[in-house]
């Protein structure tokens, strides 16, 4: 009796895993119909973590560059007058 219960329990567990894996596979596959490469779970997770940080760094660098351009642009204008224009 006990033994039978265990077997049933194992079977139920197996069914649950199959359902979960299928659902998981469907969720992964659903993202992009054209993705034919396996992007790799580890690669995607690492990318998500790293991109969060890099996005911030990228934005900060962009603003820093704009600030530098602004400062050097205003000092150049002060020295040399207005920049030539194509128009």
């Amino acid at each position: 009796m006990r033994c039978k219960k265990m077997v049933e329990g194992e079977r139920a567990g197996r069914v649950e895993r199959v359902v979960l894996l299928t659902l998981g596979g469907w969720l992964i596959g659903r993202g992009d119909a054209q993705a034919y490469l396996d992007p790799g779970t580890g690669s995607m997770i690492l990318q998500a973590v790293v991109a969060g940080f890099l996005g911030l760094a990228f934005t900060l660098r962009m603003y820093w560059q704009k600030l530098k351009d602004l400062v050097s642009g205003s000092s150049r204008r002060a020295d040399e007058g207005p920049e030539p224009s194509d128009e």
């Binding site: 990318q47 991109a51 996005g55 911030l56």
Partner: peptide
Amino acid sequence: VSKRGLLGL
């Protein structure tokens, strides 16, 4: 991954 994050990557 946000667009900003992707550009950063």
